[in-house]
Write a protein that binds this DNA or RNA. Structure first.
Lengths: 182, 182
DNA sequence: GTGACATATGTCATTTTTGACATATAGAGC
DNA sequence: GCTCTATATGTCAAAAATGACATATGTCAC
């Protein structure tokens, strides 16, 4: 059910198409939720049936037609109720790299260092992308309350990526100390 | 398939029962993977069929019987191959609270502060639990290579919880500045 | 002119995950 | 005596998610 509320939250900011929502998931929401386009389109149709959103068909010549979704009064009521009254479930994380990390005792130091460097690079690129997005979309000097969601979640993305890099560096440090002692 | 390798990594450290594995997921692995007991028991049976683990039945009087699983040569080969050769998929996170955070524009300042305090408390309790676990299980002065997995993943848990708390405090700070300006 | 990529939405079989139900014993608290 | 919790494992229907396939057009590079 949470995907529904993630979509509802985005649509509550401004009417949007499924494709636009999908892109937002790929670019920003990726830090705390993930979905494929097939799941998003399917959920949007269910949401329209349940009348939490309404759609408007936009015909485009030479381009595929779009469906723009708008939140309904009922939808906004539902969303606020979910945010404030429903029990907050703890985050569910599936991080393959940490699975690997938990089995590092099976590898050599060099193999571990190789994996860590790959991840540091990956996270640095993600971090740069998020910093760029934030500088282009958020006025940090004078943030507006309407933008609070984008601002704080992009901030979260930045802090998460930095933490991940710091953790990788700490692991390298721990390893270097072990290496010297043996 | 990743659940399989998460289980395999744990069993590679020492032979274990499904129940023990489940408890480890609840206590430590929770930071980077989640699974229910039904899924773990089902996967263990499949893994035995595929001969990556073998089981030994332990009869207990007055207590339910156990099945202790041990990794096979084939299993260890499989695991190492997965760790080093398979493409590392990015983490998938489903964090309901951040879904809520992305819709904070629909709430009042007081409602937001209330939610943030709930989460700060939750994360502080998790942090304390992890710090306690680490102090009891890891020798930080002289960490042993066999323990590298537990050490660095518990370290990850600590850094993650701290980052989450810091982020909550930062959001409060951002809000306090906005409040003054309006 | 052709292959790749971006826009835009959809279906669908398979896999994964959830959460409730089920069973059995022991111990602690009320 | 009763309920709750912990140990220990299991089934199973339903829900959620994945990933491949499908369709249609415009643009851009080679």
């Amino acid at each position: 059910m949470s995907l529904r509320y993630a979509l509802l939250g985005l649509i509550s900011k401004k009417p949007q198409t499924g494709y636009e929502l999908y892109q937002t998931f790929q670019q920003q929401i990726i830090y705390f939720w993930n979905s494929t386009h097939s799941q998003i389109y399917t959920e949007l149709r269910k949401m329209e049936q349940d009348e939490v959103i309404s759609s408007e068909l936009i015909y485009q010549e030479g381009s595929p037609n779009k469906k723009k979704y708008t939140i309904t009064k009922e939808g906004e009521k539902d969303l606020i109720h979910w945010i404030l009254e429903q029990k907050i479930k703890p985050a569910k994380i599936k991080d393959e790299f940490l699975i690997r990390a938990s089995a590092f005792h099976l590898l050599s130091i060099d193999e571990i260092l190789g994996l860590l460097d790959t991840i540091i690079e990956r996270e640095q690129q993600i971090l740069e992308g998020t910093l760029l997005w934030q500088s282009q979309h958020i006025e940090q000097e004078q943030p507006k309350f309407e933008q609070i969601g984008e601002y704080i979640t992009s901030e979260y993305g930045i802090m998460y990526a930095k933490m991940y890099i710091d953790w990788c560096l700490k692991v390298k440090d721990i390893l270097s100390k072990m290496d010297l002692e043996n």
